[in-house]
Amino acid sequence: MKILGWLTVLMCGALLIFNVSEFPDMGDANSPANSKQNLSEYFLKKAYHDTKVPNVVTAVLADYRGYDTMYETAVIFSAGLACFFLLRIFRKKGPKSRFYRHTPTGVTLRIDEGGKLPEESDVFKRIDSIWIPHDNIVRITCRLVVPFIQIFALYVIAHGHYSPGGGFQGGVLLGASIILIAVSNNLRAGIQRMSEKGAALMGSAGVLIYAGTAALCLLLGSQFLNYNALAKLLHIKPVVARYNGILIVEIGVALAVMAVMVWIYYNLSSAGKHDEGL
């Protein structure tokens, strides 16, 4: 394999170096991709006029090339489905006896099959393969940080029209906040906050918001994804309808990305068993 690797790399390298002289210089504003008469110019000059969104990247992402972005959401959704489909193992029966620790006294209880299980609380903690003695510093720091991460995430989503940001970035941050809970406590703590079913359904809902908005435009008589059609429905100007349409799909994207990130984490970290993890 080593020889094959070197051979491929050498061939590729030769091919890549062969053409270097025609490659535009870095920062060249006159290369065909950046030059005046092309797309770059059109987007920069017209995007605000067309959509009332100053962040041109957002405007292009969710409006001009919104069709791509819809599939991008579908890609991440497929990845969630794929990880679930490949890894998830449903266990019909739990282990016969369970162990609990009474935290204030430090006593460990064994409850056999059929016995009454104590309610999960701060007082009784279930001990299983994932149980680790609590590290208060890590746990409390993370707990303190999580709300800030989430608020920042909402800001990133909502402010994507005006500053760098948008649905993907915000969605990833939201997902990261829940993953942080799962990492700092254990997987079950994460699942308590967002169940697997909840994550799966939210992922579907996110993609559905995007594709559904787009299909609604089609049903209202415009092209697929043409937010202008929403103007009639919302009684606003077409340009403002584009602005709002972008916001709606960004929220859909954020929802899908958050849910799928968490879902993928659950499946990957526990190899599909959902009862143990990092």
Binding site: A33, N34, V57, V60, R65, D68, T69, V75, I76
Partner: peptide, 18 residues
């Protein structure tokens, strides 16, 4: 130029999914 940024946002997501 905004277009490559848009395209790469998609490619990053695809990379994560893969």
């Amino acid at each position: 130029n905004p277009l490559p940024h848009v395209l790469m946002l998609t490619a990053i997501v695809v990379g994560v999914a893969t």
